[in-house]
Design a protein around this nucleic acid. Structure first.
Length: 458
DNA sequence: CGGGTTTGACCAGCGC
DNA sequence: GCGCTGGTCAAACCCG
């Protein structure tokens, strides 16, 4: 959910934009009341805990007002008039800020709703189109293996539900299988892949970090480590241990080219309740999987469609101009993977405050086909747009906010952004403060500690 | 002692 | 069929 996440984010920061919104809201809705004056004539304390919080946040404005009022003691009427004019201007500015922030919030809320509805719609369609997809699949001339078993088109959530149910009954596979040896179970599950939805859609995130693994709100147990070809750094395999039988796994590996880059790949859906940060990650993987699975064919067109579907949440991305720009959707074998690269510097376009109106396709899709996506190693890459799903951003946000280094950087960045906004920012400056999200900060700040992670999803 | 990590072995998929 | 590679298992080990 967008709102709680924002609150959580702001909780870690030193500045609370939420409080600013509320406070400005108060002034705007009750601007006819002489609130600042009344406040300054009161006990002078900040009643942060007072219901309705009159004098919270925006210390700058209210503080200045208070000083003016106190300075007016013994001054002439002319000074008083000037102060009132200043106060009026200040109120107008705050009202304007409030309107902008509110519209931003509305936009984000609408976008979230639209995306959510679209996701539900896609899942419904998938549920109804299973036979159709199967037929399509048969007709496919050169189906990519990884996408072929996606074809049944059951949604990741459905799969998670079924897993959850089966977990309640015993293990994450059918009870009849649970009595067999692990190897048999594994074989059976592998066989199932041909008739069960794709288990291997992935969400991958690259970021810079010195840590072994970024904190993402989940508990993981390492179950293996391998040397991967072409990379001197070993790849570690982790399994979610927050619940028995949780199918979620992740791989962590340093980038061969740049060892400061950590690549984390998540795969699977959790079958248990999650803490907020982890829930965001889970929603990301689900959404990413749903997006990929909604492609359900091996054609470029359907992948483009999937990308377009994903762009429905682009209003979010408009607010996160940095993180939203680094997504790569790869249809290449073995698994369809969405990669979010937080290590690249955003382009000037991406840095700009352009914010197209909310809607399914606020900006033209920019899709690059290096070569045929059906050829292994091929794929498609979205460049400079906001085609990534909002939930990917949520995921990254979750990971970032749960990482102390990111949090510290975020706090500093928000502070600086707020300062810039205050000192004449105005206008599209709201784009920066609108989300209060780490996406504003992280990818474009080379000096910031970053972690590189890859998410995979079922 | 319980839970997590390490590490060699096993298995499946894929290309030649 | 064979070898390579990625993914997983499970016994041994470590640690609090």
């Amino acid at each position: 959910m967008e709102r709680p996440r924002e609150i959580a984010l702001l909780d870690v920061g030193s500045l609370s934009r939420r409080r600013q919104v509320e406070e400005v809201d108060f002034f705007s809705e009750r601007s006819s009341r002489p609130i600042p004056v009344t406040k300054t004539e009161g006990d002078g304390g900040r009643d942060d805990d007072e219901p309705g919080g009159v004098d919270i946040g925006l210390n700058l404005s209210t503080g200045s007002l208070r000083v003016h009022a106190q300075g007016g003691e013994g001054s002439n009427n002319h000074n008083h008039t000037l102060q009132l004019i200043d106060m009026k201007h200040e109120l107008e500015r705050l009202n304007e800020d409030n309107r902008r922030l509110r519209s931003t919030l509305d936009q984000a809320t609408k976008s979230y709703s639209a995306l959510h509805s679209h996701l539900l719609l896609l899942r419904q369609q998938q549920a109804h189109e299973i036979p159709e997809f199967s037929q399509k699949d048969k007709n496919m001339s050169t189906p990519a293996p990884a996408l072929r078993f996606i074809a049944p088109g059951r949604s990741s959530v459905q799969e998670a539900d079924e897993r959850s149910r089966s977990a309640d009954e015993g293990d994450d596979l059918s009870p009849s299988l649970s009595n067999k040896s692990p190897k048999l179970v594994r074989e059976k599950s592998a066989d199932h892949l041909s008739e069960v939805p794709c288990r291997k859609a992935r969400v991958s995130v690259r970021a810079r970090s010195d840590a072994q693994m970024i904190t993402d709100g989940c508990q993981w147990r390492k179950y293996g480590q391998k040397m991967a070809k072409g990379n001197p750094c070993p790849r570690a395999y982790y399994r979610c241990t927050m619940a028995v039988g949780c199918p979620v796994r992740k791989q962590v590996q340093r980038c061969a080219e740049d060892k400061t880059v950590l690549i984390t790949t998540y795969e699977g859906n959790h079958n248990h309740p999650l803490p907020p940060a982890a829930a965001a990650m889970a929603s990301t993987t689900s959404a990413a999987a749903a997006m990929i699975l909604s492609g359900s064919t091996t054609s470029r067109d359907s992948l483009v469609a999937a990308a377009a579907n994903a762009s429905c949440g682009s209003a979010f991305l408009n607010h996160f101009p940095y993180a939203s720009t680094m997504a790569t959707l790869s249809a290449s074998a073995p698994f369809p993977t969405i990669t979010l690269d937080l290590t690249r510097t955003p382009s000037p376009y991406q840095r700009s405050a352009q914010r197209p109106p909310a809607g399914p396709f606020p900006v033209p899709l920019s899709v690059i086909y290096p070569h045929d996506s059906r050829i292994p190693g091929g794929g498609m890459q979205f460049v400079g747009g906001r085609e990534q799903t909002s939930s990917v951003v949520e995921t990254v946000s979750a990971a970032i906010t749960s990482d102390p280094n990111f949090t510290a950087a975020l706090t500093a960045a928000i502070a600086s952004v707020m300062e810039a906004h205050r000192s004449g920012g105005g206008g599209e400056g709201a784009a920066v403060t609108s989300g209060g999200h780490p996406a504003v900060v992280v990818p474009g700040s080379p000096q910031l500690p970053q972690s590189c992670t890859t998410f995979s999803t079922n």
